[in-house]
Design a protein around this nucleic acid. Structure first.
Length: 110
DNA sequence: CCCGTGACGACAT
DNA sequence: TATGTCGCCACGG
C-alpha cells in the first residue's frame, strides 16, 4: 500500500522476529537496503510506540548484543522481557547472541 | 532550505 | 583488546 515509510518498513521486519530470538539494528537496516542507516532503525524504534500493532523492539539489540535501548524501555524491563522469552541476558548483554541472532536477510530470504 | 540529533557500525590509533 | 573518531541517513525544528 502506497509508499512504504522507512519507519513502517522497520516495524514490519521487527514484528517478524520470532520469540526467543534477537536481531541487530544493522541487520534490519541491511535487509532494508540501507545498511548505513543502522541508527535510523533505532530511531524508528523510539517512535514504535505509535505503531500498531506494537513492535517488539526489545528483541532488537546492537551488533554486540548489548541492550543499548533498554534505557528507553524503563530500566530492566527489556532484559526481563527477553529472559521471559528464553533469551538469556546478563549485564545488559545477550548471551549466546550468535545462537539467538535472527537475520532477516537470511531467515526471510529462505 | 539549513542545522542538529540519534536505541549504530566500522575503522583507526 | 580497548578507546576514540568519523560516516551514515531519516526526521524535527
Amino acid at each position: 500500500m502506497s509508499e512504504p515509510n522507512f519507519y513502517d518498513l522497520v516495524y514490519q521486519v521487527v514484528r517478524l522476529i520470532p520469540p526467543g530470538r534477537v536481531t541487530s539494528y544493522g541487520a534490519v537496516a541491511n535487509y532494508l537496503g540501507t545498511k548505513g542507516s543502522a541508527r535510523m532503525v533505532g530511531y524508528a524504534m523510539q517512535a514504535c510506540g505509535t505503531a500498531d500493532p506494537p513492535v517488539p523492539a526489545h528483541r532488537v539489540v546492537n551488533s554486540q548484543g548489548l541492550l543499548t535501548g533498554k534505557f528507553h524501555f524503563g530500566g530492566n524491563r527489556m532484559e526481563q522481557m527477553l529472559a521471559s522469552e528464553g533469551v538469556i541476558v546478563i549485564n545488559d548483554k545477550v548471551q549466546d547472541f550468535k545462537k539467538v541472532f535472527w537475520d532477516p536477510a537470511i531467515e526471510l530470504a529462505l
